[in-house]
């Protein structure tokens, strides 16, 4: 027997789908700002493994020479990013949705099991539920990262008015580097998230748009 089950509340779907273009705009404008002083790299001493970013990257996404424009977009859309995030946290806290999202003491073990299964090392998937341990950890981390972006962002946006915050984050240059590192974290999250959504298939994706999914249940008459 097939059943239609409600999975994602309307509010959460809105927060999710609003966040996607807003965060994309924040990352794009942030990259145009970063371009003006693109000093970060992966390497040690004289040796550089990777430089953020190579010229082709700036060209491909038209990131060069738009510092003033990038700042203006960034300082407008920061409000929407912050507001959407705060409303999401309030909603999950008040509605009780946090119960599905916050990791508990079993989440880490389950997350390891899920990861091993996804990598094809483990044969058995832990019993499915709304969000497994790996998802709970990922979806809670991404909110903490959002809070981190707001904190590090404020620390470099108003480093005199909020100098206590800037100093607590290790000073102005460190706060800027942290703000940048969090952005790389979003890009990493995005890649894994998209891969997992593709793996999970249409029924799962559709639930994030419509709120409903189809599930097979045992027919009680049999």
């Amino acid at each position: 027997m097939t059943k239609i089950e409600h999975k994602h509340p309307l509010a959460i779907r809105w927060f999710h789908w609003i966040n996607f273009p807003v965060l994309s705009l924040m990352i794009w404008s942030g990259m145009t700002i970063y371009w003006a002083n693109d000093v970060y790299r992966i390497g040690a001493g004289e040796f550089t493994l990777f430089r953020f970013f190579p010229a082709w990257f700036y060209d491909a996404f038209d990131l060069a020479s738009h510092l003033s424009q990038g700042m203006a977009w960034h300082f407008l859309f920061m409000w929407f990013f912050a507001l959407n995030g705060v409303l999401y946290v309030l909603y999950t806290a008040i509605s009780g949705e946090w119960r599905y999202l916050l990791p508990n003491r079993n989440s880490l073990r389950e997350a390891i099991q899920v990861t091993l299964y996804d990598l094809g090392i483990r044969k058995v998937h832990p019993p499915p539920r709304k969000f497994n341990g790996a998802q709970q950890i990922a979806y809670t981390s991404i909110i903490l990262m959002g809070a981190g972006s707001l904190a590090t962002g404020l620390a470099i946006y108003k480093p005199v008015q909020f100098s206590w915050l800037t100093q607590a984050l290790g000073g102005y240059p460190w706060a800027r580097a942290e703000h940048f590192a969090l952005t790389l974290g979003y890009l990493l999250f995005f890649c894994v998230h998209i891969a997992q959504v593709i793996r999970a298939g249409w029924n799962n994706f559709r639930a994030m748009v419509t709120g409903f999914e189809l599930i097979e249940v045992e027919d009680p008459k049999k």
């Binding site: 027997m1 097939t2 059943k3 239609i4 559709r206 419509t210 409903f212 189809l214």
Partner: peptide, 11 residues
């Protein structure tokens, strides 16, 4: 609900 009905509704 049988499969056909469920799919119709969700579609």
């Amino acid at each position: 609900m049988n499969r056909v009905d469920a799919e119709k509704v969700i579609r």
